[in-house]
């Protein structure tokens, strides 16, 4: 589970009584600043300072264990974008993100609707759908590596393929992550397994928050169940969908552990991702500058996704 799987809903805080601008400030005021100072300092150095350093490193010639800070401008980036492996990585990231979002959202929404309609054993179902979230991507990767290990024509099928064989569904067999045409899509299966339950839980909470009267009123007006979902419920759930897209989207941009444990870069880099390339080139190849470049590109992709959302959230809070 990623640390970031918490939807950012920022609770509005009532405005302070009077903005105290007395000088000298009271002892409590000083104390309040002192109390958060260590955290602020830590984030300033370990997040913003480090990012600045990484940004700087990406503009240098640092390609040995010991730093070499000769400034070479954007050369690393130019080179990176012309590297076949990086092009494949970006392509994989897009494929992964789209598939992962579509699968998680549709599966999560579908299951939430079914559970919301009131079924026996709801608690059990909910727990089953949600528990993969408690696991580490490493555990998920190890298990799914064996499940999606295709076996071979010569020695026999293994994993899921073997299950298909036994069920007489042999045509469903596939090479999974060993097939360069599938590659990263096999990782999507494992990632969806792990995180779709989380989307289900978010939607379920959202559905439970919709007043029953709204549905009743619509029913009285002669709306069908499908119409109610389309015109009332789904629009009401938009904020949740948006939140889920943001959370899942930024996880998929950063995906690393799962790829490490499950597939590695795969045949022809078909399951390689930028985060893995960064680790590989920086710490194995000693291309610190290039690794820093990849990190900066990752950061920009995440920032494009996250910052508008954060700003939007904080704005609406102050407006309230």
């Amino acid at each position: 589970m990623a640390r970031e799987t918490v939807p950012v809903q920022i609770q509005s805080v009532p405005a302070p009584r009077i903005a105290s601008r007395r000088w000298p400030p009271s002892a409590d005021r000083i104390a309040s600043v002192l109390l958060i100072a260590p955290s602020v300092l830590a984030i300033a150095v370990f997040v913003y300072g480090f990012i600045a350093f990484t940004g700087f490193a990406s503009l240098t010639k640092w390609n040995t264990l010991r730093p070499d800070f000769t400034f070479i401008g954007l050369a690393n980036y130019a080179r990176l974008f012309s590297t076949v492996r990086f092009q494949i990585d970006l392509h994989n990231t897009v494929t992964f993100t789209i598939l992962f979002l579509v699968l998680c959202l549709s599966l999560g929404f579908g299951l939430a609707v079914l559970l919301d309609r009131g079924v026996r054993g709801e608690g059990i179902f909910r727990s089953i759908f949600l528990f993969p979230l408690a696991l580490s991507f490493i555990v998920t990767g190890v298990v799914w590596r064996w499940l999606l290990n295709p076996g071979s024509v010569e020695l026999g099928s293994t994993g899921v393929n073997q299950l298909f064989d036994r069920a007489g569904l042999g045509f469903l067999k596939s090479g999974w992550y060993t097939d360069p045409g599938i590659g990263i899509k096999a990782v999507v299966v494992a990632a969806t397994w792990q995180l779709s339950g989380y989307v289900m839980a978010m939607y379920l909470a959202g559905l439970r928050g919709i007043p029953e009267e709204l549905r009743e009123a619509a029913l009285v007006d002669g709306a069908s169940e499908v119409q109610i979902y389309r015109h009332i419920i789904v629009p009401l759930l938009h904020p949740i969908t948006l939140g889920a897209i943001i959370i899942l989207g930024h996880i998929s941009l950063k995906i690393f552990d799962l790829v490490v444990a499950m597939t590695g870069p795969g045949p022809g880099f078909s399951s390689d991702v930028p985060a893995f390339f960064m680790f590989d080139t920086t710490f194995r190849g000693n291309y610190f500058a290039q690794g820093a470049g990849i990190a900066v590109i990752l950061l920009i992709m995440v920032a494009v996704l996250i910052i508008p959302y954060l700003v939007f959230n904080l704005r609406t809070e102050t407006q309230r």
């Binding site: 010569e154 020695l155 060993t178 097939d179």
Partner: peptide
Amino acid sequence: LTYTNSDHAA
């Protein structure tokens, strides 16, 4: 490479 086992990538 056309003579290899189908599961070489695994």
